[in-house]
Design a protein around this nucleic acid. Structure first.
Lengths: 258, 258
DNA sequence: TTAACAATTAACATAATGTTAATTAAAAGG
DNA sequence: CCTTTTAATTAACATTATGTTAATTGTTAA
């Protein structure tokens, strides 16, 4: 139980208050493997996890030591949970200005043995090349990228296994139903690069089909072809580049094809 | 979360902790007005608000008195914010077992003058007839249903104006992109009843068009016609009844029509 | 010079949609 | 009993989008 509260005009001291307020971040990246020159890359969605140290800097036994966990930390009263997530990404990984989205609150009694601790879960999207910056800043902490498919088998701290399942659900849905895929792509991209991003999380036949997808991309209201801009990074034949544009998405399951 | 360098096992006392943890609930209902017999109803989406009392039960001046506010209250350490929302709906309104969805965290420093108070926002869907139950339980609290269009002009407590805007955004999106519309409808419903629910929040031409919508509903994978079940509540001609069924929704903006 | 290949275009059958009109079944009023 | 009214349903047809298969293009590299 939290201790002595000072007298305040509006007294809330009769209520028990939480023992801590934290932010956790599921950091996703897509690794892009070039199988050969002049061909589209093979992409894979991965999640970054940290292995909790056996003991802290003062030599005390660490809670949930040796288990894999999401990066995160305590929120201060001068910031929001989202700002704390952003700050921690910058402090711990040296990466600033990246896309963050809140997707859940974890406040199940007993979820953290240290007390009544409420956690806000966010996912972050870090382009692969920004992760390499991190290597420079890297202290001793053990960090690893895991393909999202084989996360189940690892031993995870606290309720992070559950948080990670939800994170994957949310990023998958957002990739298909919002334009967040742009966070994984350069400003200008080819149809096959966008297709490769989407195929990391779906096996939709209409997205797998090259001709259909190349035809469709030209009609999407939130993507435009950039006139005169071509690249050869995915093909010998100079290939049209596209970019995302702001457009209202108001589609519904009642009007979509199924 | 990451093994924090400053952290000692099971000791979180060095961190400042929140002064309170609350749940707020945006209670939505759709009022259904029968213009005449044997015709579909006119529906309107409304939000229930409570007028904050001038003083509390002990006679002290109440904070944000006289302003309209979302129902809600403090979360206890033995429950989640979602469970607290459910409990408060039952305690304050006498309505149990209704659909609740979490849609946001409000933790901006200074949002509540009483201190560092974190609020979880949920929306609830209460069928109109369940609200009449409430009247019986009603104590002195002033309660009113507001059409979602003309909420802007009212004086709202704390940051509830902002929370309400987000609630409307979320329920609108969920009505179009999930099967949550079923929470506003009886188990069996006609195409025009479903259409009326959707038209409370969209002006999509494809949903406005009777013929197109009546034809489309038969092909939706998450709705089935109930053989031999007809009603005359919306028409003299006995009308086919439908129900929602569980079905995986995996549509994407990249394959939908635009 | 030619083989290889991703991107692009073409062609066509099939499916879904927008639109307009006709038909149906029951109620209500004379 | 007959007629009008009305929401639901069906029909019909032009238009548009999609699935599929095949051909063409522009470039690299052997």
């Amino acid at each position: 139980m939290k201790s002595n509260k000072e007298e305040k005009p509006y007294d809330v001291s009769r209520y028990r208050t939480p023992d801590g307020y934290t932010s956790d971040i599921a950091v996703f990246t897509i690794t892009s493997e070039k199988t050969k020159a002049y061909a589209p890359p093979k992409m894979e969605l991965k999640l970054m996890l940290i292995k909790r140290a056996e003991q802290d800097t003062e030599g005390n036994l660490n809670i949930e030591a040796g288990k894999w966990a999401l990066p995160g930390g305590f929120v201060t009263p001068e910031e929001t949970a989202m700002e704390a997530a952003s700050r921690e990404l910058e402090e711990e990984m040296g990466i600033a200005g990246i896309h963050l989205k809140h997707f859940g609150v974890y406040d199940e009694p007993g979820r953290d043995p240290r007390g009544w601790i409420i956690s806000n879960a966010h996912y972050a999207i870090v382009p692969e090349h920004r992760l390499f910056e991190r290597k420079a800043n890297d202290d001793a902490a053990e960090v690893e990228l895991f393909p999202v498919q084989d996360l189940e088998q690892h031993l995870l701290a606290f309720d992070h296994a559950s948080i990670i399942r939800h994170a994957i659900t949310h990023i998958t849905r957002d990739l298909l139903q919002t334009t967040v895929a742009k966070q994984f792509l350069p400003e200008l991209f080819t149809y096959s690069e966008l297709q490769a991003v989407l195929l990391t999380i779906t096996d939709d036949k209409a997205i797998q089909n090259e001709q259909a997808f190349a035809r469709k991309i030209k009609t999407l209201p939130f993507i435009e072809a950039v006139e005169g801009q071509k690249t050869q990074r995915t093909s010998k034949l100079p290939t049209q580049l596209y970019r995302f544009i702001d457009a209202e998405l108001k589609q519904s399951i009642y009007t979509a094809r199924h």
